[in-house]
């Protein structure tokens, strides 16, 4: 450090950093600067930033709590909705079952009535058919008797009406 030059004008030959004549100046202004920064931070910036951060943390916590509450409410509402839906569904099923039962009853009635009518008609028809059949048998029997009597007469055989009728009845069975 032999060639170290005092004063700034010839400092190019030495390292300006080792020019001790400027040290008091730099140190003085550095201390002023640091103190100024410290007071700006201490008085204004740090409380403000800390306040903002705390406020934000508070807001976030509050918001999360509110959200939690709202979520619970939403869950409650959902449960109520589900319950209402289930109730409505049960009601609808009940109504449907009632209607079905009613319709079934009416249907059964109508079917029974129709069955009765059909049965009545069928019995009537059966009776008529029996009548007609009986009528037809009698007529055939009479015609057969007559025809047998005629045939027997024509053949010269003697036969009473009762014999003929018995014979005819015998044949008709077979």
């Amino acid at each position: 450090m032999a060639t170290e030059t005092p004063g700034g004008e010839e400092a190019a030959t030495g390292l300006p950093q080792l020019d001790f004549s400027t040290f008091p100046n730099q140190i003085f202004w550095l201390v002023v600067t640091l103190v100024a920064i410290y007071f700006i931070l201490q008085r204004v910036a740090l409380p403000r930033i800390a306040g903002v951060l705390a406020e934000r943390a508070g807001t976030i916590t509050n918001d999360i709590a509110t959200a939690e509450e709202l979520k619970l409410k939403a869950q409650e509402a959902e449960a109520a909705y589900d319950k209402a839906l289930a109730d409505a569904r049960a009601e609808a099923q009940r109504i449907a079952a009632e209607a079905r039962a009613e319709i079934q009853g009416e249907l059964d009635d109508a079917l029974a009535k129709a069955d009765a009518q059909i049965a009545a008609k069928a019995a009537e028809s059966e009776a008529k058919i029996a009548d007609i059949r009986a009528g037809a048998l009698d007529a055939i029997r009479a015609v057969s008797n007559d025809a047998a009597a005629e045939i027997a007469g024509a053949m010269g055989a003697e036969a009473s009406a009762d014999e003929i009728a018995a014979a005819v009845a015998e044949r008709m069975k077979g």
Partner: peptide, 20 residues
Amino acid sequence: FIVEPLFGGDTIHWYTPTNV
């Protein structure tokens, strides 16, 4: 890196306003 007085002059006292 040379420290110079801001408003002319040669000597740098501890209170001189410089580029520092």
